[in-house]
Amino acid sequence: MKNFNKKLEKFKANSKNPFSVPKGYFDDFPSRMQDRIISEQKEYIWVIRLFRYVKPQFALAFMIITFAVIAYGTVNFILSNRTTNGIDNELYTRIMEVDPTEFSEQHFLEVLFEEERKVNDHKNDEMEFYIHYLVDEDIDYGTLIDEL
């Protein structure tokens, strides 16, 4: 390995670069490069000009699209929340079934009060049942308190 390294070094010292280039290549290369840079710059300037020209149109289109997306999203959001209000579905159906054309705030309130009245009637029935039970079984108030 060491011998081969020495051989390589010796070989390099005794030999010229085996590759060559066309005559005058390195003299011409900087000016060719300069020409290419100038054409690249022209191309770059053309792209910049085009971009400057189309930029306002792109901005306007972007604004319109953004506005449309926001509007669509908002409408969708409102519509999806509309059905989830506080009124119980059965009651809502009943209100609407009466006569959708004659639906008014007054009518709506009447139905609501009727619902409340029904609940109260149900409570009164329960109360009466307990009273009758206590009278029938002859349980006086004192005994009931003692039991509790």
Binding site: N17, F19, V21, P22, Y25, F26, F29, P30, M33, Q34, I37
Partner: peptide
């Protein structure tokens, strides 16, 4: 532009030979 031209002149030979030894052909190197 002047500075870039000087950079090209200073390094073109070294870089040319470095590339040439990798790709071998002159046209590709250019």
């Amino acid at each position: 532009n002047f500075a870039f031209n000087l950079i090209v002149r200073k390094y073109q030979v070294k870089l040319y030979w470095h590339i040439r030894k990798i790709v071998i052909k002159h046209d590709d190197t250019d």
